[in-house]
Simulated scan of single mutants.
Amino acid sequence: MFDDIRPYRDDEVVAVIKKLINQQGLQASIASLKMPRLYQALPQLACKIVKWSLKFRVKKFHNIEQIQIEVAKYLHHLIKNSTAGFNYSGIENFDTTKPALFISNHRDIVLDVALVNLALHKSGINTVEAAVGDNLLHQPWVADLMRINKSFIVKRNEENKRAMLNASKQLSAYIHDTVANRKQNIWIAQREGRAKDGVDKTNSALISMLLLNKDKQMPMADYLAELNIVPVSISYEFDPCDIDKAIELAEKEATGSYQKHEDEDLKSITQGLVGQKGQVHLQFCQPIQGDFANSKAIAAAIDKEIISNYKLYDSNLVAYAKLNHQDTDSTVLEKLNKRMENLTTEQQHWLLTMYANPVSAKQQLPL
Rank of each mutant, 00 (worst) to 15 (best):
194 R>K: 14
169 K>Q: 15
145 L>H: 04
203 N>K: 10
191 R>P: 01
168 S>E: 09
154 V>P: 04
203 N>E: 13
194 R>I: 02
181 N>Y: 15
147 R>S: 09
179 V>Q: 14
185 N>I: 12
158 E>P: 00
182 R>S: 13
208 S>A: 11
153 I>M: 02
139 Q>K: 14
155 K>R: 13
153 I>N: 00
204 S>M: 08
139 Q>M: 13
164 M>R: 11
164 M>A: 15
187 W>Q: 06
201 K>Q: 08
165 L>I: 14
139 Q>N: 12
174 Y>L: 03
192 E>L: 11
149 N>P: 06
144 D>V: 12
163 A>W: 14
208 S>W: 02
169 K>T: 10
179 V>R: 05
208 S>K: 08
164 M>N: 13
186 I>R: 03
196 K>R: 14
192 E>C: 01
158 E>H: 04
198 G>E: 00
193 G>E: 02
150 K>G: 10
189 A>Y: 02
157 N>L: 01
149 N>Y: 00
178 T>V: 02
190 Q>Y: 01
200 D>C: 07
193 G>T: 00
139 Q>T: 08
167 A>Q: 07
208 S>C: 15
162 R>F: 15
184 Q>A: 15
162 R>I: 13
190 Q>L: 06
142 V>P: 01
170 Q>H: 11
197 D>P: 03
176 H>V: 04
141 W>D: 04
187 W>S: 04
138 H>W: 13
185 N>A: 13
196 K>D: 01
203 N>W: 05
172 S>L: 05
206 L>I: 14
173 A>R: 07
209 M>H: 05
204 S>K: 15
160 N>R: 06
142 V>H: 10
201 K>S: 10
186 I>T: 06
209 M>N: 07
169 K>P: 02
141 W>F: 06
199 V>R: 12
180 A>P: 06
186 I>E: 03
174 Y>T: 00
141 W>V: 04
201 K>V: 10
158 E>Q: 08
166 N>W: 10
181 N>R: 15
153 I>A: 00
138 H>M: 11
141 W>Q: 08
144 D>M: 07
167 A>N: 04
198 G>M: 11
140 P>W: 04
214 K>S: 12
156 R>T: 11
149 N>V: 10
212 L>C: 00
209 M>G: 05
207 I>M: 03
182 R>G: 13
209 M>F: 03
175 I>Y: 00
208 S>L: 08
197 D>V: 05
163 A>R: 09
209 M>K: 05
143 A>V: 10
210 L>F: 06
207 I>Q: 02
190 Q>I: 03
195 A>C: 07
146 M>V: 13
155 K>N: 12
189 A>L: 02
168 S>M: 09
160 N>I: 09
138 H>A: 11
180 A>Q: 08
172 S>V: 14
